[in-house]
Amino acid sequence: MKIEDLLTRARETFDARTVFAEPVERDGVTVIPAARVVGGGGGGNGEDQQGRRGSGGGLGLLARPVGAFVIRNGEVSWQPAIDVTRIIATLGAVAVTGLFVGSRVRRKR
């Protein structure tokens, strides 16, 4: 893939539709889901010792839901998504840190 093609695809990929999904309407309530999107890419070209040229590139995205805008009776509210995996990982990290610090304090005494 040429660098120009990579940049074109990146421009097409990163737009509002990547962050906000199509609105969904049910019983007079409209919901617009939103996500946090992180991306990165890279490319390069070169030539080997026999004079052969080559180029390449890549693009990667990571999207996680963060919540949704809810429109009801003309009022807009934000409903955050709850990431249970992140909560458990954070609690685990805090617990491990607490055990580590506790053991160090006990050794000093």
Results as ranks from 00 to 15, higher is better:
residue 82 I to K: 13
residue 91 L to G: 07
residue 76 V to F: 01
residue 38 V to T: 10
residue 3 I to T: 14
residue 19 V to L: 01
residue 39 G to C: 08
residue 41 G to N: 03
residue 63 A to G: 08
residue 41 G to E: 06
residue 44 G to M: 12
residue 90 T to V: 09
residue 26 R to V: 11
residue 79 Q to E: 15
residue 96 V to M: 06
residue 95 A to P: 05
residue 10 A to L: 15
residue 6 L to G: 03
residue 22 E to N: 07
residue 103 S to Q: 12
residue 103 S to G: 12
residue 71 I to W: 00
residue 60 G to L: 11
residue 40 G to A: 12
residue 48 D to L: 08
residue 11 R to Q: 09
residue 40 G to N: 11
residue 29 V to N: 10
residue 93 A to Q: 05
residue 95 A to D: 11
residue 73 N to S: 15
residue 19 V to R: 04
residue 42 G to I: 14
residue 2 K to W: 05
residue 75 E to A: 14
residue 2 K to P: 04
residue 30 T to C: 06
residue 48 D to G: 01
residue 65 P to R: 14
residue 102 G to V: 04
residue 45 N to C: 04
residue 24 V to L: 06
residue 27 D to L: 06
residue 18 T to S: 05
residue 66 V to C: 01
residue 47 E to A: 09
residue 69 F to E: 11
residue 5 D to S: 14
residue 45 N to F: 07
residue 85 T to E: 14
residue 71 I to P: 00
residue 27 D to Q: 11
residue 68 A to K: 00
residue 75 E to H: 12
residue 26 R to F: 06
residue 27 D to R: 12
residue 26 R to D: 03
residue 32 I to R: 00
residue 60 G to Y: 08
residue 81 A to N: 10
residue 52 R to D: 10
residue 51 G to Q: 13
residue 23 P to W: 01
residue 9 R to A: 06
residue 61 L to P: 03
residue 91 L to C: 08
residue 109 R to A: 10
residue 66 V to M: 12
residue 42 G to L: 12
residue 28 G to P: 04
residue 36 R to S: 15
residue 34 A to R: 02
residue 81 A to V: 05
residue 57 G to Y: 04
residue 77 S to I: 03
residue 107 R to F: 00
residue 45 N to S: 09
residue 38 V to C: 02
residue 23 P to R: 00
residue 2 K to Q: 03
residue 10 A to Y: 11
residue 25 E to M: 07
residue 63 A to N: 10
residue 88 I to P: 02
residue 80 P to I: 12
residue 17 R to M: 00
residue 27 D to F: 06
residue 58 G to A: 15
residue 91 L to H: 06
residue 74 G to Q: 15
residue 103 S to E: 10
residue 59 L to Y: 15
residue 64 R to D: 11
residue 108 K to V: 05
residue 103 S to H: 05
residue 30 T to M: 09
residue 88 I to G: 04
residue 43 G to L: 01
residue 91 L to D: 07
residue 97 T to Q: 03
residue 77 S to D: 02
residue 42 G to Y: 04
residue 76 V to A: 08
residue 100 F to T: 02
residue 31 V to H: 05
residue 49 Q to Y: 13
residue 66 V to T: 15
residue 102 G to I: 09
residue 103 S to P: 00
residue 2 K to F: 10
residue 28 G to W: 10
residue 109 R to Q: 06
residue 3 I to F: 09
residue 3 I to C: 04
residue 69 F to G: 10
residue 103 S to V: 09
residue 25 E to I: 07
residue 67 G to L: 15
residue 91 L to R: 11
residue 54 G to L: 13
residue 32 I to K: 00
residue 8 T to I: 15
residue 30 T to Q: 11
residue 38 V to F: 03
residue 15 D to A: 07
residue 78 W to Y: 13
residue 38 V to W: 04
residue 53 R to L: 13
residue 89 A to V: 11
residue 70 V to K: 02
residue 28 G to Y: 02
residue 66 V to Q: 05
residue 109 R to S: 04
residue 17 R to V: 02
residue 16 A to W: 02
residue 90 T to H: 05
residue 7 L to G: 03
residue 58 G to R: 10
residue 3 I to N: 03
residue 51 G to N: 07
residue 32 I to Y: 01
residue 4 E to F: 10
residue 32 I to N: 00
residue 76 V to K: 03
residue 1 M to R: 12
residue 68 A to S: 11
residue 104 R to D: 01
residue 94 V to N: 02
residue 37 V to T: 06
residue 75 E to K: 15
residue 56 G to H: 13
residue 81 A to K: 03
residue 49 Q to I: 13
residue 43 G to N: 02
residue 61 L to K: 08
residue 69 F to V: 13
